[in-house]
Design a protein around this nucleic acid. Structure first.
Length: 254
DNA sequence: GATGACCTGTGA
DNA sequence: TCACAGGTCATC
């Protein structure tokens, strides 16, 4: 995610858009059409690449619209046919032209494409940025503590709620809870102050770890039932928490 | 806040 | 052949 933003920042800013490639109407959200994109993007350049959680925000020149790009779980950004980051898990890295769901052709002959096998990504114009909470990278200890003490939901549900914290998905959340030794199903408001601090540190270290690996989600917690816990050896547990498949260690995550 | 639908490649 | 993966949205 962050590496995709950086790729756009380093390689795509300042290049004049010649045309828009938007063959997949389903991929355009909130009433957006290919015609609307054609009407506003050609002639402009991309000026800034920002990110809030999993939503990429690309500003355009001459008071143009903000281009919102969602990668979903399997989407990747390609600039001049070059991808960012490590190969993702749960996603194919093959080159299939039909997986190009959206793109910008630049006047210099280059391009920016979203390649997304499973079509779970999305493109929108002028996205409502405030539907997302604080970006996980900027989450402070006291912000997290307030969220936790204010909710009786499972701690995993609080971490995954994009309106509270933007950017933590299923895998990252499991990994952070594993590192913090906290049971994902614990009601958020039952965490002690020391556990809340530990969880904050675990979120930060998980994020640092994954960005260092180029945004890939591979962590310390194996997502395999009955695999021995790398920390204490107990067979790992698999269940549904907050509506998502959840792996945790039944012994040391309390 | 929980649940199921959406979508489609992957691997058993 | 089919269960499963994940982020988001509509619905309860």
């Amino acid at each position: 995610m962050e590496s995709a933003r950086r790729l756009i920042e380093e390689r795509a800013l300042g290049r004049k858009i010649a045309s828009v490639f938007a063959p997949d109407a389903w991929y355009l959200k909130r009433g957006l059409t290919a015609g609307a994109l054609d009407a506003v993007l050609p002639g402009r350049t991309l000026t800034t690449a920002r990110r809030r959680g999993k939503l990429m925000l690309v500003d355009t020149s001459d008071d143009g619209p903000v281009l919102g790009l969602h990668l979903g779980m399997s989407g990747r950004v390609l600039v001049d046919d070059e991808a960012a980051g490590d190969p993702l898990i749960y996603a194919s890295n093959r080159e299939v032209p039909a997986w190009h769901r959206f793109g910008l052709e630049f006047a210099d002959g280059g391009s920016l494409y979203l390649r997304d096998p499973r079509r779970l990504g999305a493109v929108e114009l002028d996205p409502d940025e405030d539907r997302l909470g604080v970006d996980a990278f900027d989450l402070t200890q006291s912000q997290l503590s307030r969220m936790l003490t204010a909710s009786r939901a499972p701690v995993k549900a609080v971490l995954m709620d994009q309106a509270r914290v933007a950017g933590l998905g299923n895998l990252l959340t499991d990994e952070a809870l594993f590192r913090a030794a906290v049971d994902p199903a614990r009601a958020a408001d039952t965490l002690e102050a020391t556990e809340r601090r530990r969880l904050h540190r675990a979120v930060q270290s998980t994020l640092r770890h994954t960005t260092r690996r180029g945004g890939s989600h591979t962590g310390r917690l194996p997502r395999v039932v009955d695999e021995p816990c790398p920390k204490c050896g107990a067979p790992l547990l698999r269940r549904t928490v907050a509506g998502r498949t959840t792996y945790s260690c039944p012994r040391h995550q309390r």
